[in-house]
């Protein structure tokens, strides 16, 4: 494990562009939503033709994956050396 540092040092050592990356992320997200209004949607299965479908579906996947992976952990997680005992 790395030597523990105080929180000030850790923040200083963070990737300087992290904030910029997140800003870019939010800008792209907003831009895609704005452009989405201009696109003529023709979904194959109904729902996927709705405005902003990929946005809410992406969020839904994030939520579902988080819940399911927690559930998986609760049911099937064992100590790291489980097979070596």
């Amino acid at each position: 494990m790395p030597a523990s540092k105080d929180s000030h040092d850790r923040n200083a050592a963070r990737f300087a562009g992290a904030r910029a990356v997140w800003i870019v992320f939010v800008v792209i997200a907003a831009a895609t939503l704005a452009v989405d209004l201009l696109i003529d949607h023709h979904g194959k299965f109904g729902v996927d033709g709705s405005i902003g479908f990929y946005a809410w579906y992406g969020l839904l996947v994030a939520i579902a994956l988080t819940i399911l992976s927690r559930l998986l952990g609760a049911l099937l997680a064992r100590p790291e050396d489980y097979y070596d005992r």
């Binding site: 992320f25 939010v26 792209i28 895609t32 939503l33 902003g52 990929y54 579906y57 992406g58 969020l59």
Partner: peptide, 13 residues
């Protein structure tokens, strides 16, 4: 646009 939206919003999630 669809693919970017999917990836970016999943990332934000």
């Amino acid at each position: 646009v669809a693919q970017l939206q999917l990836l970016v919003f999943a990332g934000l999630g």
